[in-house]
Amino acid sequence: MLKTDLIAKNPMGAFSRDAAGNDVQRMGLVMARPGLGKTAILVQIALDSILRGKQVLHVSIGETLDKTKVWYDDILNDISANAKQEDMADLHLEVSRNRMIMTFNASTFSRPKLEERLNDLIYQDIFRPSCVIIDGMDFSKVDRKTLIDMRDLQKEANMSIWFSAVTLREAQSETVVKHDMPAPCDQVDDLFDTAIMLQPESGDEGKIFLNVLKDTTGCVAPGKSLRLDPTTLVVWGSCF
């Protein structure tokens, strides 16, 4: 009951499934300058898959295991604030079962390493993610080749991969108007199916908007905009 409700109400569902509820695999990107809620958005996208019984691998670069876990716990609590306590315990357990967190140092993470880990999990039948979240990769240091490899991996394994990227502050304002990617992602925009940008409303730091810059899967119309709750960084309630 609680779960179906949560799935139905999650506006981020549009970034992982179509109107009929079928998974739509993609390369996705969430961009923002630091502190606006990239991780929160990624966690909400992950939760949509997890609650539908799919498995999600959350790769966290430069962040600890505990902190990543806390993101999930907090957001789950926020979005199901009125739920009964015993239902929540089951929900948290289910989320832990369908989620695996891998943390890496910025220097140890690489595409071959990720592939090796994925193979470990899949061949031993430990975990089969339908979605991989890669949070904290430094896009200013990533070359195009790496992302092409990632895209190949995404297609081969038939799963979604979502990235977060920190944008440069000065690059934001003018480029977004054209629905183009801001730096440093502007050189690789063709590799992504979906791109989201988080932005504070100009002149009002309290309001944060989620703008869809691009979506080639047809699930969401580019140009759509949603508002984030600035304290919890959660998007909730209204649907696309």
Partner: peptide
């Protein structure tokens, strides 16, 4: 761990 009905919470890789 998987063979032991374990639930892997996560991994931490450093070097």
């Amino acid at each position: 761990i998987n063979q032991r009905r374990g639930m892997i919470i996560g991994t931490l890789e450093e070097g």
